[in-house]
Design a protein around this nucleic acid. Sequence first.
DNA 1: TGAAAATAGATGACACGACATACATTACAC
DNA 2: GTGTAATGTATGTCGTGTCATCTATTTTCA
Lengths: 155, 155
Amino acid sequence: MNLEDEVRYLILGLQREGNRQIAQVLAPAAVTPSQAEAISLLAEHEVLSLRDLGALLVCESGDSPSRLIDRLVDRGLVQKEISTLDRRSLSLTLTSKGVDIYRNVIEPAEVGIRKAIREALSQEEINQLHELLMRFAGVTNSSGALNARRERQST
Amino acid sequence: MNLEDEVRYLILGLQREGNRQIAQVLAPAAVTPSQAEAISLLAEHEVLSLRDLGALLVCESGDSPSRLIDRLVDRGLVQKEISTLDRRSLSLTLTSKGVDIYRNVIEPAEVGIRKAIREALSQEEINQLHELLMRFAGVTNSSGALNARRERQST
DNA sequence: TGAAAATAGATGACACGACATACATTACAC
DNA sequence: GTGTAATGTATGTCGTGTCATCTATTTTCA
């Protein structure tokens, strides 16, 4: 297999295996990796509309993540209110139960993931990998959500 | 956001966007990226059991991809026979229609993807990225299927 | 040999993820 | 101001992906 195919499948494989490992860590709290990403963003930004959240989520294309959020609302982790400024728009916030899950489960899991990455690669390798992935993602239009996160620092 | 998180989300984002773009190229033939991976492996290996195919697929964990294949059987692209040596096992092969789809749609798509990657990154960058991803995947247990492919060269 | 373990695959359940479509609300153009 | 376009969200559909469980067949080994 040529290098281009290998790179492509390595990215796929790393995403899949990473997702499985993260899912395992989150499983005791019955939270999925995608749900954790949404909760984490809500913990950082306090209030978001579905559309804004969708723009920040890497795990889903811009499409508004109605159903992802609905499940969190059903479980009492997220509160969903109609915005008073624009009745089309939703104001999403974490409930106290959502904040608990974030603090006790998701944040520790994120810390653990970072640690695992630092143990897998040297700081120098992480820097190089980051730079190459940024270039690759930039050229292939894959960094939309990450760019949106940089432009929209917190709340 | 720190570098570890960025690397993690860049890999996720690249996988997602890559998948969307490949899906678009394959859409006219109503073939999904996962189906294309399976067909491509069958084109290379002539005959595979479900289990062997599962071991070579990056897109699914080792779990036998019964349903992925069932859809291809339903569409007449793959033939599924009970092995005579071991009646538990299946012998999967491409039908002539499956070979056609491979030659006319999937193989050209794969060539296009490789070209797109070479246009996104320099040869030197591809080499570096490949090396770093190999290290990362090796340490994190993410290269199972790719290793299996190397050990099982063609038929 | 014959019971237990291992293996190959099928299937149910659940949550994505992408796309298309539908609906309500707001913005805009004139 | 009103008709029209744009926007925010909901929902249907389809194909994954993952895990758990089930059945049929083969291996193992006491």
